[in-house]
């Protein structure tokens, strides 16, 4: 818990600087509201904000889940078959060098304003980090370990279960953390392109009305959403792979 003091202190300083800057430079309120006004707005409009926040949350989680459900099996296929690898990988890489966001309007044209286009856009943005990190993880077996499992006559299934899968988890979790952040971006953008609810939609309306306190309130919610999702994955990581080096270094004793 003591670790929380430092970021909290940073926040206090930043909010203080914000407060002073608004007063000192006499920034017009429609450009930059006072922190207090944002907090008031968050409290007054909490039901309304939470309703829209919930929409963005399930779009994000839905797209993220879709990325996992498609990304991990696809990685398994690509790792287990060089034919599939050679047939698909160039296209997947090409699809990622292409700005996926540019597809969002087309997807709205095809699928309308419902949940489906949101999930598709979120998936398009979020699945690549999962795919790549799973592939890298599954291929991270060194020669000695490969020979060890050969000498034990491990079956394909045993090789996967005893060696490749656990070895892939650290990389997979790194990918999941990147992906979940991307997923929130994807959901907001999908809402910008065509929606009548959600935090992205609120941003646009607040923007149109020059309602900066609302803008800031939504940004705060997006920040909270991102943080919660990220830390949820980190907790899961700690639970599943406590042996992993980066975690070990963080919780380990200082060496001097």
């Amino acid at each position: 818990m003591r670790n929380a003091i430092y970021p909290a202190l940073t926040a206090v300083i930043l909010v203080g600087a914000w407060y002073l800057a608004v007063l000192f430079f006499e920034v017009p309120r429609y450009l930059l509201p006072l922190p207090g006004e944002v907090v008031t707005r968050l409290i007054e409009d909490r039901d309304f904000l939470l309703r829209h926040g919930w929409v963005t949350t399930y779009e994000t989680l839905g797209g993220f889940a879709l990325s996992i459900v498609i990304g991990i099996p696809l990685a398994l296929l690509i790792v287990s078959s060089s034919t599939i690898d050679r047939a698909l990988m160039p296209w997947i890489v090409l699809s990622q060098t292409f700005p996926k966001i540019a597809l969002a309007p087309l997807i709205v044209v095809w699928f309308g304003l419902g949940l489906v286009p949101k999930l598709i856009v979120t998936f398009l943005v979020a699945f690549f980090p999962i795919l790549i990190s799973t592939i890298v993880g599954l291929r991270s077996m060194e020669r000695d370990m490969d020979e060890l499992r050969l000498s034990m006559r491990a079956s394909v299934w045993q090789t996967f279960w005893y060696f490749r899968l656990p070895l892939a988890l650290p990389s997979l979790f790194a990918g999941l953390k990147v992906s979940v952040a991307f997923a929130a971006v994807g959901a907001v953008i999908a809402e910008w392109v065509g929606a009548n609810e959600g935090l992205g939609y609120l941003l646009l309306t607040a923007n149109a009305n020059l309602d900066t306190p609302l803008l800031f309130a939504v940004l705060v919610l997006l920040m909270v959403l991102g943080m919660v999702l990220y830390h949820a994955i980190e907790m899961l990581e700690r639970l599943l792979i406590p042996w992993h080096a980066t975690i070990r270094l963080k919780t380990g004793q200082p060496s001097f």
Binding site: D144, S151, I241
Partner: peptide
């Protein structure tokens, strides 16, 4: 003609599973 069940190998690195 393949890995023999009656063989045990020690490699240059311990290759232990960290988990």
């Amino acid at each position: 003609s393949g890995p023999d069940p009656g063989v045990g190998i020690v490699f240059q690195t311990p290759v232990l599973l960290p988990w």
